[in-house]
């Protein structure tokens, strides 16, 4: 059976790149191509997979494919027409909603998503330092910071026993060949 394979999302790129005439121009070092790739990386597929950049959607049932094919072509046209990056991205948001942006915007309510991890980190660090401070304050003050080696179990039979046991065991260990 001869199967005509429906080309997957990369068709978008090829189409867009063909429109830009970039296949022949070579991808690296061409400022227009680089700008195109940079902008494509800021956009992503709006199909339910939600995982991929616009150019990479690997979802078999990508529901937004036809729409996005057109979008990639539009992107290539816009890149060529010389619109500013911001204007191009804005046009995409208007068409697909804020979901199309690969990273949440850094203004409005979405700013919260960027700030919260660092707020949590700050609060956590503060709590950590507070706990450390509290524990240090709890430390029994009787123990000097640098105590001299104590004489073996001064008047404490339990300590003497422990010291003897440990000394014997560790001594044995060192002697054993």
């Amino acid at each position: 059976m001869q199967v005509r394979f429906a080309s997957r999302p990369l068709r978008r790129i090829s189409l867009a790149l063909a429109l830009l005439g970039l296949f022949t121009a070579g991808l690296r070092g061409d400022p227009v191509a680089e700008r195109y790739h940079r902008l494509a990386a800021k956009l992503r597929c709006v199909c339910p997979c939600h995982q991929s950049m616009l150019s990479e959607c690997s979802n078999m049932q990508c529901s937004a494919r036809a729409q996005l094919d057109a979008a990639m072509v539009k992107l290539s046209q816009k890149v060529r027409s010389g619109d500013s990056d911001e204007l191009i991205l804005q046009a995409f948001v208007q068409e697909f909603g804020p979901e199309v942006l690969a990273a949440p915007p850094t203004h409005g309510f979405s700013l919260v998503v960027w700030i919260m991890p660092w707020v949590a980190a700050g609060l956590g660090l503060w709590a950590l330092l507070a706990v450390l401070h509290y524990w240090r304050a709890q430390r029994p003050s009787a123990e000097p910071a640098t105590a001299p080696a104590a004489p073996a179990g001064d008047g404490d039979p339990a300590l003497a026993r422990v010291q003897a046991e440990i000394a014997r065991e560790l001594g044995d260990w060192e002697r054993r060949e």
Partner: peptide, 8 residues
């Protein structure tokens, strides 16, 4: 020394 005290 501290561990020995704790063990005691």
């Amino acid at each position: 020394q501290m561990l020995e005290t704790e063990a005691a």
